Simulated assay, not measured.
Amino acid sequence: MTDLRPFRRAALALLVAAALPGCALFRTPPPLTVESAYAQGMEAYNAGQWRRAAELLGQFVPNATSDPRLKGALMALGRAHLETREYVSATAQFLRVATEFPRDPEAEAARFGLCDAYHRLSPRPQLDPEYTNAAITYCESFASIYPGTPQAAQAQAWVAEMRGKLAQKAYENGFFYFRRGLYDAAIVYFNNVVTQFPESPWSSSALLRMTEAYGRLGYREEEAATRARLLREYPQSPEARNLAAAPADSAGR
């Protein structure tokens, strides 16, 4: 027969502990106050505990409208969201600092945070470009307000990257129609690449496809003009070198 006495003694010990005042085993943690949310949130932030910091500071910020620590808490909350890849939430915190405290020192970091967060949100070129356009807007704005800074140089590099994505998307849209023999529609997209993103490597590819499209449509004058433009404006591109090596009347055929 199983000896149940040890189990009975353990149950009795638990009952006695529950009856003792202040027993740690059954003690209810004190409710989180605004002060403790801030203190624990910043402690977690400084320790690199990003999710914990975001949780606690997220409880402090709505109750700290007139608190002088609000700006710092918003910046910490935004950076914590960046670290946890909650980029949309990060933009909300940085935008608050930039709009509510536009002349304070924190505004510069907040504006760069907006640029950074939207750059991270920017998807592959084939997807909706909403966040890519937002990244261009905020990064161009930052670079114009804080020229000559390392962050401005980074923002400009991100702008070039984002514009390259838009150029690629426009080119691929044009090529979609080109492959199906819908050359007029393809030309519209290819022309958009060249006019809106002339600095992009996709521009020389778009001009080559436009040359081919005009040739297949039998528009000899437009074909020749587009060919000449490619050779003139992008002479070092692979497309221009290949086209220059081919007979002029063989383009597009």
Rank of each mutant, 00 (worst) to 15 (best):
D3C: 00
D3L: 02
L4R: 10
A11Y: 11
A11L: 15
L12A: 09
L15P: 09
P21C: 00
A24Q: 07
L25M: 09
T28W: 05
A39G: 14
Q40N: 15
M42A: 12
A44E: 07
A44M: 09
N46I: 06
W50G: 09
R51D: 14
R51C: 05
A53Q: 02
F60N: 02
F60E: 08
V61L: 04
A64D: 02
P68K: 12
R69A: 12
G72Y: 01
A73Q: 12
A73T: 06
L74K: 11
M75W: 07
L77K: 10
G78D: 03
H81T: 01
E83Q: 15
T84A: 15
Y87G: 10
Y87W: 14
T91V: 11
F94H: 03
L95C: 07
L95H: 13
R96F: 10
R96Q: 12
V97Y: 04
T99D: 11
E100D: 15
F101S: 14
P102D: 13
D104T: 11
D104I: 07
A107K: 01
A109T: 10
A109E: 11
G113I: 05
G113Q: 03
A117K: 02
A117C: 09
S122Y: 08
P123S: 12
R124F: 06
D128C: 11
E130M: 12
E130W: 11
Y131R: 13
Y131N: 14
N133M: 14
A134H: 13
A135T: 12
T137M: 15
Y138E: 15
C139I: 06
E140Y: 01
F142Q: 11
A143F: 01
I145C: 02
I145T: 01
Y146G: 01
P147V: 05
T149F: 05
A153Q: 15
A153N: 12
R163P: 09
K165L: 06
A167L: 02
K169S: 03
E172F: 08
E172N: 09
N173C: 08
F176H: 15
Y177R: 14
Y177S: 15
Y177L: 09
G181S: 07
A185G: 03
V188G: 00
Y189S: 12
Y189T: 00
Y189K: 05
F190H: 02
N191R: 10
N192I: 03
T195F: 03
T195Q: 04
Q196I: 00
Q196L: 01
F197R: 00
F197Q: 04
S200K: 06
P201M: 03
W202I: 08
S204T: 05
S205K: 10
L208A: 10
R209A: 10
R209D: 02
T211F: 03
A213Y: 04
Y214W: 13
G218L: 07
E222W: 10
E223F: 07
A225N: 15
T226S: 06
R227C: 03
A228I: 00
L231A: 11
R232E: 14
R232W: 03
E233I: 08
E233A: 13
A240T: 00
R241L: 11
L243M: 14
A244Y: 06
A244W: 08
A246G: 02
A248E: 13
D249Q: 00
S250L: 11
S250K: 07
G252H: 07
